[in-house]
Simulated scan of single mutants.
Amino acid sequence: MSHGNVKYMAKKSDKKKSAVKKEYHHGDLKRTLMLAASELLEELGYEKFTLRKCAARAGVSPSAPAHHFKDANGLLNSLAVEGFQSLSSKLRVTFLNSPKDTANPCSAVAVEYLRFAKNNPALYKVMFGSRLNADNPELKSASEACFENLYLSVSEMFPGKNKEDLNAISLRMWSSVHGLSMLVVEGRLNFLIGKDGFKNLSSLESAWLNIQGF
């Protein structure tokens, strides 16, 4: 009986290994791991994320992620790259679809940036987290391209400005909206709700945007 169980377990293990190999062969393993990582980050948070937990969530062996990622930080780097690419695209599309004759032409872009952070809090923390390799070529390219896309929109908002001014406006916009976004996703502004006329988080955000001139 025991030999039969061993034989059955061996077959079951072989099937699992075969499934992992199939995923890897077809290029699905990387995507599966990234989706599993996204779920875990939402559930456990940035600090408690490990590659072993990610492999378990994806239903693969602990060694399987090594096909694509050297370590947990490597996987987080890949998520951050996709995050910057998505943010960049959303900001550009928002600008192109927004009215340009308003008093605050940057407002729609700032609101979209804040929306992205609130809709993807775990990913947003990863994108600006300390566990990333800042020298990673893909990550540098994606984050810099995001700024360049913002700069492009700003240059179209203010066609009469020189390059130095446009860089300054873009930097001010990104740094200030990023600061608010991080405070919001970390829950650091909840103490202001119900005080000083802030009925909810939306009214706080609107007041901040008006003060900033966005």
Results as ranks from 00 to 15, higher is better:
residue 112 E to D: 06
residue 89 S to I: 14
residue 172 R to W: 14
residue 119 N to K: 10
residue 188 R to I: 04
residue 86 S to E: 09
residue 171 L to S: 13
residue 50 T to Q: 10
residue 59 G to E: 08
residue 18 S to C: 10
residue 63 S to F: 12
residue 89 S to N: 15
residue 116 F to R: 10
residue 135 D to E: 13
residue 141 S to N: 09
residue 75 L to G: 03
residue 209 L to G: 02
residue 81 V to L: 07
residue 150 L to E: 03
residue 89 S to T: 13
residue 212 Q to H: 04
residue 172 R to C: 14
residue 39 E to M: 13
residue 139 L to E: 00
residue 14 D to C: 12
residue 51 L to E: 01
residue 8 Y to C: 08
residue 53 K to G: 15
residue 137 P to L: 00
residue 102 T to Q: 10
residue 175 S to E: 14
residue 70 K to P: 00
residue 174 W to E: 12
residue 120 N to G: 07
residue 162 N to P: 04
residue 48 K to P: 03
residue 19 A to Q: 13
residue 4 G to C: 08
residue 159 P to N: 05
residue 189 L to V: 04
residue 63 S to N: 08
residue 198 F to W: 02
residue 172 R to P: 05
residue 193 I to L: 02
residue 147 F to W: 09
residue 167 N to D: 13
residue 91 L to N: 01
residue 31 R to V: 10
residue 124 Y to Q: 04
residue 212 Q to K: 01
residue 146 C to A: 06
residue 56 A to C: 08
residue 92 R to V: 08
residue 57 R to A: 12
residue 108 A to D: 12
residue 86 S to D: 06
residue 133 N to V: 03
residue 119 N to E: 15
residue 179 G to S: 02
residue 117 A to G: 05
residue 138 E to T: 00
residue 131 R to K: 12
residue 132 L to I: 14
residue 127 M to S: 01
residue 128 F to N: 01
residue 28 D to N: 14
residue 125 K to H: 13
residue 186 E to I: 06
residue 141 S to T: 12
residue 211 I to T: 09
residue 81 V to Q: 00
residue 195 K to F: 04
residue 181 S to G: 06
residue 152 L to T: 09
residue 175 S to H: 14
residue 201 L to W: 00
residue 91 L to R: 00
residue 190 N to I: 04
residue 42 E to Q: 14
residue 38 S to P: 07
residue 107 S to M: 13
residue 65 P to I: 06
residue 157 M to S: 02
residue 159 P to C: 07
residue 214 F to W: 09
residue 77 N to I: 04
residue 160 G to F: 14
residue 46 Y to R: 06
residue 84 F to G: 01
residue 81 V to I: 08
residue 12 K to Y: 02
residue 132 L to T: 07
residue 63 S to H: 13
residue 210 N to D: 15
residue 89 S to F: 11
residue 209 L to R: 10
residue 182 M to F: 14
residue 122 A to D: 00
residue 18 S to L: 14
residue 75 L to M: 13
residue 42 E to V: 07
residue 56 A to V: 11
residue 43 E to D: 15
residue 28 D to R: 12
residue 3 H to D: 14
residue 39 E to F: 14
residue 145 A to M: 13
residue 53 K to L: 15
residue 132 L to S: 11
residue 38 S to A: 10
residue 114 L to F: 06
residue 65 P to E: 05
residue 30 K to W: 04
residue 20 V to R: 00
residue 60 V to M: 05
residue 99 P to D: 11
residue 121 P to H: 05
residue 106 C to D: 02
residue 65 P to K: 09
residue 94 T to H: 03
residue 96 L to F: 02
residue 116 F to S: 01
residue 163 K to D: 08
residue 39 E to Y: 15
residue 11 K to N: 07
residue 77 N to F: 01
residue 190 N to R: 12
residue 18 S to E: 11
residue 20 V to K: 02
residue 25 H to W: 10
residue 80 A to K: 01
residue 78 S to Y: 04
residue 73 N to Q: 13
residue 100 K to I: 06
residue 148 E to S: 05
residue 88 S to E: 07
residue 102 T to L: 12
residue 27 G to D: 06
residue 98 S to H: 02
residue 111 V to R: 07
residue 79 L to F: 03
residue 21 K to M: 10
residue 47 E to F: 15
residue 211 I to C: 05
residue 103 A to S: 15
residue 86 S to G: 07
residue 104 N to Q: 06
residue 164 E to R: 00
residue 155 S to G: 13
residue 187 G to H: 05
residue 58 A to Q: 05
residue 6 V to G: 04
residue 25 H to N: 09
